[in-house]
């Protein structure tokens, strides 16, 4: 088993209205010095797969075809091998 942690974020330079509103709210609350906030998505995907190279190929295809819209978003992921559930 491999667990993948996927971050999908807006590309730099793309206006993020949510991030801007959150930054303003933080300022209103008195958190000084917040210069920028970017909002993205976080996904955890469990793969029935032990080969990191194969898992990575699958994840890349998933991100390109569905999880991210590469016109406006970019993605990155981390792989975490999971201990086999059959281990005694």
């Amino acid at each position: 088993m491999i667990r993948a942690k996927i971050h999908v974020t807006l590309k730099s330079g793309i206006l993020d209205p949510q991030g801007r509103a959150i930054r303003q709210s933080l300022e209103t609350l008195g958190f000084a010095g917040v210069t920028d906030v970017r909002v993205g998505k976080f996904l955890e995907i469990e793969l029935n797969q032990d080969d990191p190279a194969e898992a990575e190929a699958q994840l890349k295809a998933m991100c390109e075809t569905l999880l991210a819209n590469t016109v406006i978003e970019e993605y990155r992921y981390e792989l975490e091998p999971q201990p086999s559930q059959h281990a005694s």
Partner: peptide, 17 residues
């Protein structure tokens, strides 16, 4: 149509949210 690639570009949330 944008997501399907039948038209170019993408949609973002409205600027005023």
């Amino acid at each position: 149509l944008l997501e399907a690639g039948l038209l170019p570009g993408a949609m973002l949330p409205n600027v005023g949210l």
